[in-house]
Amino acid sequence: MNDDREAILSRVRGALAPLRERAALPTYDSEVAVMRGLIAGRDLVELFCERARRVGAVALSDPAALVARLRAESRFRGYCDPVLWPRLAPYFAGGDFQVEVTFDRTRVDDYGFGITRAAAAIAESGTIVLNDTTTSTRLAALAPWVHVAVVARDAIFSDISQAVAALGHDRNVVWCTGPSKTADVEGILIEGVHGPGTQIALVVDWESSGL
């Protein structure tokens, strides 16, 4: 709709022409939008775990604990990013687990969990950061009831402003802050609407590059 383009832009110019001056872009320190007294002096891993729990996510640091959790919830069938699988497979060995490394979208309901790589995390908000260069499949991080994001300890940003500043050339990024939720029905909080009802961050000390 090229005509519309010209028409809109010309109306915009016409609307702005009579302004004697235009509002200036304010200068401000990104720090103003950072929560006060939360981060200073804190270990970022510890803070991230604390904040993740506050938004209803689960933060674990031991793959064995993850396996125990999945077993306790009877989620034996799932998906794991093929890059992660060699490191995680030993923990799943010898059980009733059935883990696939390709995600079959025709069987979304078969997957009780999906394990994918997180590019980073944000301590201030308890957020995990997924980006499309490292997310093997978007659906695996979304459709199963349990999503496990594997985060490297050294990839935790202190706050939202830092994480935005680091968006860099990752063109497609999604932040997940806790499980999928709604309060549409009478304001009652329900988790697991379209996305995971359980959002787990597995914080590992593998180097982020090795993830």
Partner: peptide
């Protein structure tokens, strides 16, 4: 503090991107 899903979409899938 933050809405659960915050997506930053910089364009359609690149060849190097597995999905999108």
């Amino acid at each position: 503090d933050l809405t659960v899903y915050t997506e930053f979409i910089g364009g359609p899938k690149l060849p190097a991107q597995p999905d999108g």
